[in-house]
């Protein structure tokens, strides 16, 4: 594997082996000194053309635990602000010697485009509405751990609720969850669904309440305020009333059901109940697992086969 651009490019076996490797990374992370020399001498550059705290920090932590050299390219204070093109930015930084770029961009397809201009590996850390593959992997890992489903998600019922249309998390998760064998239902008002779902192995519902008791995983997406300006929603209040997770709705979930959210949450909109009071909430596990999953991705793309199980430390 040279790049990680989209879950579409991953086979179920690829996902499975990344999750297996994540187990080892969780073990590394639990050591007193959570650091291995696996990627010593490798240069990992984060290029975030769009704001992010958790994803960027998570990748940074993952690379450091593997002893890679890391550089954060803060676009706001860079030559991009002076009008430098994406191509020139990539070629210039590549010329310094880069093994992997971790790229977030507001334009769908930007990471794929960048692969034409550098020999480095490209890891998509979120592009427009398109894909966020490490989010999908960490979500799979969290479900796998939370429901003790090591090998497959066969028979699991997962509802993804919210702004599917504009969500790279939804596009990635639908592909990853269904590749793992889960049954996925998208729940949203019609205006927040993609214009076509041809080829999406999902069901659609506009009635969250009828689904709740049968769910194994309730996955909530962030709903953004600006959607009302585009006449996609009448009000956040109405959204919350129809699709928000209230205490009443939470009470109708099965006891084992997981509640997930990619963050950042809109309290009082999609998350009306305090997630700290939800026994099934694994939202912070998602964040923790994100580091281990990203270690697994970095190691898969850049590692040279050194054994992580021997407990070698720096």
């Amino acid at each position: 594997m040279k790049h990680l651009l989209s879950v579409e490019d991953l086979s179920p076996a690829d996902i499975h082996s990344l999750l297996e490797l994540t187990d080892h990374m969780v073990e590394v992370s639990s050591r007193p000194i959570p650091k291995v020399p696996a990627l010593r001498g490798k240069n990992v550059v984060s290029l975030f053309f769009e704001d992010s705290t958790r994803t960027r920090t998570s990748f940074d932590t993952a690379a450091k635990r593997l002893s890679a050299d890391t550089m954060n390219f803060a676009v706001a204070s860079s030559s991009v602000n002076k009008g430098e093109s994406l191509r020139d930015t990539i070629e210039t930084i590549s010329a310094m010697g880069v093994d992997a770029f971790v790229i977030r961009h507001k334009s769908s397809g930007a990471p794929q485009m960048v692969t034409r201009w550098t020999n480095a590996s490209i890891i998509n850390a979120g592009d427009g509405w398109h894909q966020h593959p490490t989010q999908a992997l960490l979500d799979c890992y969290t479900i796998r751990a939370g429901l003790n489903r090591r090998d497959s998600f066969d028979g699991l019922r997962i509802a993804i609720v919210g702004d599917i249309k504009h969500s790279r998390v939804a596009r990635s998760d639908v592909q990853a969850f269904t590749k793992m064998g889960a049954h996925v239902t998208l729940v949203a008002p019609p205006t927040l669904l993609p214009p076509s779902l041809d080829g999406w192995p999902v069901e659609v519902s506009h009635d969250l309440d009828s689904l709740l008791p049968d769910l194994d995983v309730l996955y909530l997406l962030r709903v953004q305020r600006e959607r009302m300006d585009e006449a996609l929603l009448p009000s956040l209040h109405e959204y919350s009333a129809l699709y928000g997770l209230t205490a009443e709705r939470a009470a109708r979930l099965a006891p084992h059901a997981l509640v997930m959210h990619p963050g950042p949450m809109n309290r009082g909109v999609e998350m009306v109940v305090d997630p700290g009071e939800l026994p099934g909430s694994v939202i912070l596990h998602q964040v923790t697992n994100g580091v281990a999953v990203r270690m697994a991705v970095l190691f898969t793309l850049l590692g040279s086969g050194s054994d992580l199980r021997t407990g070698d430390t720096v």
């Binding site: 769908s108 397809g109 592009d127 427009g128 509405w129 398109h130 894909q131 790279r168 596009r171 993609p194 214009p195 076509s196 779902l197 041809d198 080829g199 999406w200």
Partner: peptide, 15 residues
Amino acid sequence: HEGACCSRLGLPGWP
């Protein structure tokens, strides 16, 4: 074009 392809690619459609 607004259709299956733009929905998959995560791009705004021109209906």
